[in-house]
Design a protein around this nucleic acid. Structure first.
Length: 424
RNA sequence: GGAAAGAUGCCGGAGUGGUUGAACGGGACGGUCUCGAAAACCGUUUCCCGAUGGAAAUCGGGACGAGGGUUCGAAUCCCUCUCUUUCCGCCA
């Protein structure tokens, strides 16, 4: 949620930045300011009357103590009529506050100055590329065939148990997942991230905090009986750890990591991209989150990108890093770099990580603050990134490293997997 | 799932209708003392909204789990909800 203060200070600037995201309803900005003015006026009116009521009430107490019952009764009547006049103002005030909130949450985060202009994924800017695309032998197979060949993921049985998009990992496939999770977590904790294992379902307030609600209900699985949502990423529970807290300057940065399964309904996405492991409803992911001082969040962003890049490099996969353009980035983000790995047999780039700076967009919703050196509290910045999402990594490992003997695994995974190759 | 108790500031913990934003203790911070530290002593320590002001600040309103209600006045009384603890049941 955008900070009201920023909108007040620079209405036109805000509109300009929103236009970079192709946000069409710029009238919301004016509406917000209008409601804000109205709110302030009502607040002032309310406060003045309430102040009178408060002083009179104290007086009544004193009169009663002195035994001046008649005077007390007279004052009581005055207060009663004051209260009656306060009622409609109070109603109007709460309604205005509600409306203001409803408008405010419609506004996406402002893209930072680093965000490239553009509307579609074609406008994303490639920051870096790394690794070498393998030369695959003739007859190389896409991962969905290799999966069958090595009998490591069973989609049909997953569909039988649950539904399509719920893969059932089996044997070496299950073990490789475990190995990757273990490695990613080790890698993150070695860099100073504290490991968590969070709840996989969250309540409404938590889902609101990171920006999943309102409006994105359709993307999450929902438990009606208990009013819980299955997490689409562990970013949601992790960032909410500090909801409604005021941290100490010295506590920053907070660095958190967690493995979790991620549940996504992927409503509205179907077609050719859903083949195999490219897009599924449940997948494994290790996430990193940082809560940082507002002055350093862009340095932190670079640091996190660097962290993820080295992780991808350690897997010997060809990759590229994209700076997402205004039209392609998410509602809550101020700057997003996507990591894609090259899936050779499909000849496709697959997104495996998305590292974003949310500035105060999430922390304003969650009221995560810190005391600065002057003792004033201000909002911290939040960032997160995947490190990494597993299915597409697996798809690339399978496709890029296939050979007659088996799937060659990157060196770093050998101790985790217990073998240098995935074989039949 | 059943029963009972409880939820107060950074923490512990008082407070059962009228200067209680909140006693007391602890912690943290600042100061005195000390070569330095400890101890002791003194002091400071919640947050949100608004008005005036350049700012420091001053003033007003709100917040004692959340939301409603009673009352001139609520941390204190009533209702609903959430959570915690203990006991019973069930159980990985």
């Amino acid at each position: 949620m955008l900070q009201l203060q920023i909108i007040r200070q620079d209405r036109d600037g805000v509109k300009k930045r929103l236009a970079v995201k192709y946000f069409a309803e710029l009238g919301v900005v004016d509406k917000v300011l209008e409601l804000d003015d109205q709110r302030k006026k009502l607040q002032l009116e309310f406060d003045n009357i309430q102040a009178k009521i408060n002083t009179s009430s104290k007086e009544i107490g004193q009169l009663m103590a002195k035994g001046e019952k008649e005077n007390a009764e007279r004052l009581k009547q005055q207060v009663t009529s004051l209260k009656a006049s306060l009622q409609p103002i109070n109603n109007k005030l709460s309604e205005t506050e509600r409306e203001l909130q409803n408008e405010l949450v419609k506004l996406p985060n402002l893209p930072s100055q680093k965000v490239p202009l553009g509307k579609t994924p074609e406008d994303n800017v490639i920051i870096r590329e790394g690794g070498n695309k393998p030369k695959l032998p003739a007859g190389a197979k896409p991962h969905w065939e290799l999966i069958k060949q090595y009998d490591i993921v069973d989609f049909e049985t997953g569909a039988k148990i649950t539904g399509s998009g719920f893969p059932l990992y089996k044997g070496k496939g299950a073990k490789l997942q475990r190995a990757l999770i273990q490695y990613f977590l080790d890698y993150n904790t070695a860099a100073g991230y504290t490991e968590y294992l969070p709840p996989f379902m969250v309540n409404e307030t938590t889902a609101f905090g990171t920006g999943q609600l309102p409006d994105k209900e359709g993307q999450m699985y929902y438990m009606q009986t208990d009013n819980f949502y299955m997490i689409p990423t562990s970013e949601v529970p992790l960032t909410n750890i500090y909801r409604d807290e005021i941290l100490k300057d010295a506590d920053l940065p907070m660095k958190l990591t967690a493995y979790s399964p991620c549940f996504r309904r992927e409503a509205g996405s179907f077609g050719k991209d859903v083949r195999g492991l490219n897009r599924v409803h449940q997948f494994e992911k290790v996430e990193i989150v940082q809560i940082v001082h507002p002055d350093t969040s862009y340095e932190t962003h670079e640091e996190m990108v660097d962290h993820v890049e080295k992780l991808v490099q350690s897997l010997d996969l060809p990759y590229r890093i994209l700076n997402l353009c205004g039209g392609d980035m998410s509602f809550a983000s101020a700057l997003t770099y996507d990591f894609e790995v090259y899936s050779a047999a499909q000849d496709k780039w697959l997104e495996v990580s998305s590292v974003s700076n949310f500035e105060t967009f999430q922390t304003n919703r969650m009221k995560i603050r810190f005391k600065d050196t002057n003792g004033k509290s201000q909002l911290v910045h939040s960032l997160n990134g995947s490190s990494l999402a597993l299915p597409r990594i697996l798809a690339c490992l399978l496709e890029n490293n296939q050979s007659d003997e088996g799937i060659k695994l990157p060196l770093i995974l050998h101790p985790y997997f217990g073998d240098s190759m995935l074989r039949n």
